[in-house]
Design a protein around this nucleic acid. Structure first.
Lengths: 234, 234
DNA sequence: ACAGCAAATATGATGCATCATAATTTACTG
DNA sequence: CAGTAAATTATGATGCATCATATTTGCTGT
């Protein structure tokens, strides 16, 4: 379900480490600002530094990690500008995915989406924010999967690599999971109405992401007038 | 002008090799199906295998190169399905870029675009297909640059990594450079009409890319009923 | 005690040796 | 001569040693 874009990829140890770190990023197990050390990771994973270096270099390349100076590998902080740009791109791209998914989805796939929303509803009722967050992400992935666009899936996977740490941060700060906009999306897909599906996912990203934007703007403000936050930006 | 997405990237030898190979791909100096050997490249570039391996692994990761078996690194062949998917994505993404560019472009930037089109016109008049091809690509890059969306630029750069070898192949087979649709695009940008600009670039990709699609379909047909082409697909 | 320099340490970069294995060549047998 | 099997070669994977350098620690002199 989650292993997108691995199509045809020759499997070496580096790829395994890459997937490991990717999942850690997407699931928010790596926090923005957190530093990574190649040797340490290698020791932890029981490999030499080579595959770890491979993986990290790949993640740096797609900007899922940054390397300001040679010795300083960390999970990047999201900026407001970057978030807005990514949001705009996601609206186009996930809109496309939703449109295609609405056209193509069969009964089983629709049921799968409904099940994800149902579980998400349950998670929210249980107050299990982390699970809700995870299910939300899986819903978005499932949509792209149904759209049947593997290349698009790769692009969106890379985008999620960037969103993971941010979303985890926001949820840790008490952000609410936004499920509201998934219902109209489901309705549009059931009706095979591509345009409506695209609109719905746009709403989801715009309004559902409002909490995230707020969080970023607060962080930016706190950064401009530094009080005593936990991260004094080095 | 051409070095997109290198923002903040810590420069190591691997990145240099990556850029080298990227340029080779985008400029069509690597043909679809062509095989790459790490040791050979390292020898040619006068480095050890490590940086070359770094670079190649990164390119494999973003599917600009494939690695079917561990020993078999090559420039991938484009398929019709993949081309159509990428075209759809490009229409959304470059449409977005054109829209933003139309809104933001100042006089100097518009002049820059006009200059590129003028040079392209000249190149076509001179029958210099390769140069026309290069200028066409630079026009598209310039547009994204003007749009001021660095993240989008990265995505589109990766897409061009895939298009490069294909376009070179088509032009080698006598494909015509399509400049026609750049004029309405320029007009839309001059008028700061985002929607019209997006439509124009969509037309450019759809109709201008017709030659490419034709080429791919011919290749696919020849592959299904193999006569005596130069590439019998291994 | 503090400023400034020096030694030690940490850490990514690079090169390279070795390994495993797939592709190719060679050689032997019938 | 043909076919098969063994040997050789080619080539990426992996580990690791070494290097360069940024950072930290600690010593020395005023």
């Amino acid at each position: 379900m989650s292993d997108a874009l691995d199509t045809l990829e020759h499997d070496n140890l580096g790829s395994t480490v890459y997937r490991l770190l990717s999942n850690a990023l997407i699931e928010g197990r790596l926090k923005p600002g957190e530093r990574l050390k190649i040797r340490e990771l290698a020791a932890r994973l029981g490999t030499s530094v080579t595959p770890v270096r491979d993986a990290i270099l790949r993640l740096v390349q797609e900007q899922a990690l940054t390397m300001k100076s040679a010795r300083d590998i960390r999970v990047p902080h999201m900026t407001v500008a970057r978030y807005l740009e990514i949001r705009t791109i996601r609206i186009r791209l996930e809109g496309l995915a939703a449109e295609m998914a609405a056209q193509r989805a069969d009964a089983a796939q629709i049921a799968q989406l409904e099940e994800l929303v149902r579980q998400n509803q349950q998670a929210i009722a249980d107050g299990d924010i982390a699970r809700g967050c995870d299910l939300n992400q899986r819903f978005h992935f499932a949509l792209v999967d149904i759209a049947g666009m593997p290349f698009l899936q790769g692009i969106l996977f890379r985008i999620w690599l960037q969103m993971g740490p941010l979303i985890a941060e926001v949820y840790a700060a008490g952000g609410d999971d936004m499920l509201d906009y998934h219902y109209p999306l489901l309705a549009a897909i059931r009706a095979h109405d591509g345009a409506a599906a695209a609109r719905a996912i746009g709403d989801d990203l715009l309004y559902g992401g409002q909490v995230i934007l707020q969080h970023l703007q607060n962080a930016a403000a706190a950064d401009a007038a530094p009080a005593d936050d936990d991260q004094p930006t080095a």
